[in-house]
């Protein structure tokens, strides 16, 4: 098998394993198995055994990162949202647009609770009472996805809404700067916004 084909297969397998690693409901043992595979495949992709081992180790350390609390609410009516952001009804298509994404506190340590917040607008044609929105968040480091922290379908009334998710920082989470990308999608419209936090040593 040539090197190119091997890399393609590795990419496919790696994405499958990353997904399995990311599912919050899974046991730590199963997650660790997936993470080991990620490490091996990362090594193949980068031709570096060290990089592979690093990726695998990071993934294992994140196995304990799970949702601690989830809170969602409508914060603005359609009229309030329009007034605040200067858009006008009626519209002809459904749009979702993130207005703000935060991670608080900016610096955390093992055992701390990290609050990930997002505020977004839901815009839809007149007569639409609510829309289905998929809210997701992915943890990244150095541009690489490490773990899907949350994926949940919600039904949103039009206007402005916020969601807040708490995570407990696991003991073995490596120090460094992380990015949590938050995404909302409704139909073909989607938006992504990053929030940065630092895990101190």
């Amino acid at each position: 098998m040539n090197k190119c084909k091997l890399k393609v297969i590795a990419i496919v397998c790696s994405s499958v394993l990353l997904s399995s690693c990311a599912t919050m409901e899974q046991s730590a043992g199963l997650a660790a198995l997936g993470c080991a595979g990620v490490g091996v495949l990362t090594g193949v992709l980068t031709n570096s055994a060290g990089a592979g081992a690093g990726a695998g180790a990071g993934c294992v350390a994140l196995a304990g990162l799970a949702i601690y609390n989830y809170h969602t609410s409508q914060t603005r009516t359609v009229q309030q949202d329009q007034q605040l952001y200067g858009y006008t009804a009626p519209v002809n298509s459904t749009e979702v647009k993130i207005r703000n994404a935060t991670a608080y506190p900016e610096t955390v340590r093992a055992g701390d609770i990290l609050k990930i917040g997002m505020d977004y607008s839901v815009i839809a044609p007149n007569g639409t009472p609510s829309v289905n929105v998929q809210e997701s968040m992915v943890l990244k480091r150095d541009g690489k996805p490490l773990k899907t922290l949350s994926e949940r379908p919600v039904t949103r009334p039009l206007g402005g809404g916020s969601s807040e998710v708490d995570f407990k920082i696991p003991d073995k989470m490596p120090p460094g700067t992380y990015v949590i990308e938050q995404k909302v999608q409704s139909g073909t419209s989607y938006d992504i916004r990053p929030a940065v936090f630092v895990v101190g040593s």
Partner: peptide
């Protein structure tokens, strides 16, 4: 332009 930027992601 403003309307598009305000409404769309």
């Amino acid at each position: 332009l403003q309307r598009i930027v305000n409404e769309w992601p």
